[in-house]
């Protein structure tokens, strides 16, 4: 796996069936620290694709050699905000940390080089951090700083979990 194989692209209607399968897979869902829900394809299409036009939320698909390995959701709807708020879902359990960082780096390149945003804020479930202990360290090596912890923000599998806020600015990335 190297940088060049990871690519990002906009979501298409045809991706909905893959996203539907992802959300049906309990292991993948819990591994990403999100709540399991029985969502229909129509609901996912409405929430992730059609809604984008109204809310300016954007869904990107991350691919490794043409295979979907993850989804990035980012929000850029507030005019005075200097950056984007994102969450990442990785469609695999093996190599989770590696893929997470690779997808994040690809997204950072896109946002800082192609889009004129000043910062990226990423929301990560405590559940992801418990299972991937090196993730925060690796993110910090790439310029991210821990900026806060939202207490008991998500309800997953019968328990409340915190959500970590990590942030990076264009200058931090360069440094």
């Amino acid at each position: 796996m190297d940088d060049t194989r990871i690519s990002l692209r906009a979501v298409k209607n045809e991706d909905i069936s893959d996203i539907y399968e992802l959300y049906r897979n309990k292991k993948i869902v819990y591994n990403n620290g999100i709540a399991f829900g029985l969502y229909s394809e129509n609901f996912l299409k409405l929430a992730l694709i059609d809604k984008n036009l109204l809310s300016k939320n954007v869904t990107l698909i991350a691919e490794d050699d043409g295979t979907m390995i993850g989804i990035i959701y980012y929000e850029c709807s507030k005019p005075m905000m200097t950056g984007v708020a994102i969450s990442i879902i990785i469609n695999t359990i093996n190599n989770y940390e590696k893929y997470y960082i690779q997808v994040l780096l690809s997204f950072m390149n896109y946002v800082f080089k192609q889009q004129n945003y000043y910062r990226i804020t990423i929301y990560i479930s405590e559940l992801v951090i418990i299972r991937n202990k090196e993730l925060i360290t690796k993110m910090e090596e790439n310029g991210f700083l821990k900026e806060g912890i939202l207490k008991e923000e998500r309800y997953i599998n019968g328990k409340f979990y915190d959500t970590y806020i990590m942030g990076v600015t264009r200058e931090d990335k360069v440094r």
Binding site: T82, Y118, G148, L150, I165, T169
Partner: peptide, 10 residues
């Protein structure tokens, strides 16, 4: 719970 640095331009 957190402070997001330089998040707004006003």
């Amino acid at each position: 719970d957190g402070i997001i640095k330089n998040d707004r331009l006003i």
